[in-house]
Amino acid sequence: MGRMKSGHRYAITLVGGLAVGLGAAWAITGRGLSDGQIANGPWTTSLGYGTKATDAVTRAAVARAGLLALPAKETVYWSAKSDAAGAPLDGNCRYSLSGAPLDARWWSVTLYDTAGYLVANDTKIWSVNGANVALDAKDEWRVTISPDKPAEGAWLPGTKGQLFHLTLRMYNPGGGFRADPAKAVLPRIVKEGC
């Protein structure tokens, strides 16, 4: 009988320890990719994504996010959870995402929910890129992010009642960008109303 109680205690301690350890790992890696080493307005990144030199926690967060990260000389991944004023990105609101052509061979911005999944929408539009946004007379592009489609222009659908994140991918970033990514000109995220 004493051995049985001892075995139960051991099993309970082992299961409890595993639960605490897995829970802590899930919480730490769940912070996502916005805890990067470089901040530029609402955007954050790490140039270590996709390299062997990256620490174990960052590698686990990248794996959990399903990013399949390439090294920074090939792709830089930026994440934004807030607008230019620092408020969380809210699917109830309308935002202007705009900027000049980025210093990269190709770029895209994708909208995800806070768990890192594509947001379900009837239009099946989740991303815009440098090839599908038009430049205006000032050589800038603009995308509206909102739950309702605007009368004109590029659009990323938000979902009412749901917070979201944006991921900017810059493929083959230019030398000027790589020299000082914290000072690079990145897209502006401005709330226009809710």
Score class of each variant (00 low, 15 high):
8 H>Y: 06
75 T>P: 06
152 E>H: 06
87 A>Q: 15
116 G>Q: 03
79 S>V: 14
143 V>D: 01
35 D>W: 14
94 R>Y: 03
74 E>H: 13
53 A>C: 04
154 A>H: 09
59 R>Q: 15
178 R>C: 07
166 L>E: 01
37 Q>D: 14
80 A>W: 02
176 G>R: 10
170 M>R: 01
71 P>A: 07
101 P>D: 04
83 D>G: 02
65 A>Q: 03
129 N>Y: 02
67 L>D: 09
70 L>K: 15
38 I>G: 02
10 Y>K: 15
40 N>W: 08
96 S>K: 05
177 F>S: 09
114 T>V: 09
121 N>A: 07
86 G>A: 05
85 A>P: 00
63 A>Q: 09
91 G>P: 08
94 R>D: 08
33 L>M: 14
92 N>P: 04
89 L>I: 02
152 E>S: 11
83 D>R: 05
115 A>V: 13
107 W>V: 00
37 Q>H: 15
15 V>W: 04
163 L>T: 11
76 V>H: 11
182 A>G: 10
107 W>K: 08
26 W>Y: 12
102 L>T: 01
155 W>G: 06
107 W>Q: 07
58 T>G: 10
146 S>N: 10
134 A>S: 13
125 I>C: 05
60 A>M: 13
182 A>H: 08
170 M>K: 00
76 V>E: 00
139 D>H: 09
150 P>S: 03
105 R>M: 14
55 D>F: 06
173 P>C: 08
47 L>I: 12
41 G>R: 13
22 L>K: 11
136 D>N: 11
142 R>H: 12
138 K>R: 12
64 R>M: 12
167 T>R: 14
55 D>H: 05
25 A>S: 08
156 L>K: 07
94 R>I: 07
61 A>H: 09
13 T>P: 02
194 C>D: 02
106 W>E: 06
165 H>Y: 12
183 K>I: 01
144 T>Y: 05
66 G>Q: 05
123 T>C: 09
131 A>Q: 12
45 T>E: 04
66 G>R: 05
94 R>G: 03
170 M>H: 03
151 A>W: 02
111 L>C: 08
86 G>N: 04
126 W>D: 04
76 V>R: 07
44 T>W: 08
166 L>D: 03
28 I>Q: 09
7 G>T: 09
87 A>F: 10
3 R>H: 13
148 D>V: 05
60 A>Q: 13
77 Y>A: 03
6 S>F: 14
75 T>V: 13
13 T>Q: 13
18 L>N: 03
71 P>S: 13
191 K>Y: 07
53 A>V: 11
120 A>M: 11
48 G>S: 15
134 A>N: 05
90 D>P: 10
106 W>S: 03
14 L>C: 11
159 T>K: 15
21 G>D: 04
54 T>W: 08
186 L>D: 02
6 S>T: 15
120 A>S: 06
